[in-house]
Simulated assay, not measured.
Amino acid sequence: MADRKILLIGTAAAIGVLAGGALFLTMRGGDDRFAQCSSSAVAGGMDAFGTDFTLTRDDGRRVTSAEVFDKPSLLYFGYTFCPDVCPLDAARNAEAEALVQEAGHDVQTVFVTVDPRRDTPEVLADYTSLFSDTMIGLTGTDEEIAAVNRGWRNYYKAHDEEDQEYYLVDHMTNTYLVMPGGKTVEFFSREADPERMAETVACYAEAA
Rank of each mutant, 00 (worst) to 15 (best):
D3Y: 01
G10H: 03
G10K: 03
A12R: 12
I15L: 13
L18V: 13
L18P: 00
G21Q: 12
G21H: 06
F24K: 09
L25A: 13
T26G: 09
T26F: 01
T26V: 09
G30F: 01
D31R: 15
A35K: 14
Q36C: 00
Q36A: 12
C37P: 04
S38Q: 15
S38M: 13
S38Y: 04
S39Q: 14
V42P: 02
A43K: 15
G44Q: 08
M46R: 01
T51Y: 06
D52H: 14
L55R: 07
T56Y: 11
R57H: 14
D58K: 01
G60A: 03
R61Y: 05
V63I: 13
T64L: 08
S65C: 07
S65V: 06
D70V: 04
P72R: 10
S73R: 05
S73P: 05
G78P: 03
Y79M: 13
Y79V: 08
T80Y: 00
F81L: 13
F81I: 00
D84C: 06
P87T: 02
P87L: 03
A90V: 06
A96F: 02
E102G: 13
E102S: 14
E102V: 10
E102H: 12
A103T: 00
Q108F: 00
T113W: 03
T113G: 05
P116C: 09
P116S: 08
R117F: 07
R118G: 01
T120C: 10
A125R: 14
T128K: 00
S129Y: 00
S129W: 01
F131Q: 11
F131A: 12
D133A: 15
I136F: 00
G137T: 04
G140P: 06
T141F: 09
A158Q: 14
H159S: 09
E162M: 12
E162Q: 14
E162I: 04
E165H: 08
Y166C: 05
Y167W: 09
V169N: 07
D170L: 05
M172A: 14
Y176R: 00
V178H: 02
P180H: 08
G181N: 12
K183S: 11
K183V: 07
V185Q: 08
F188Y: 14
S189C: 01
E191M: 14
E195K: 15
R196M: 11
R196E: 10
A198T: 10
E199C: 02
T200D: 08
A202I: 00
E206S: 15
A207P: 06
A208H: 13
A208I: 11
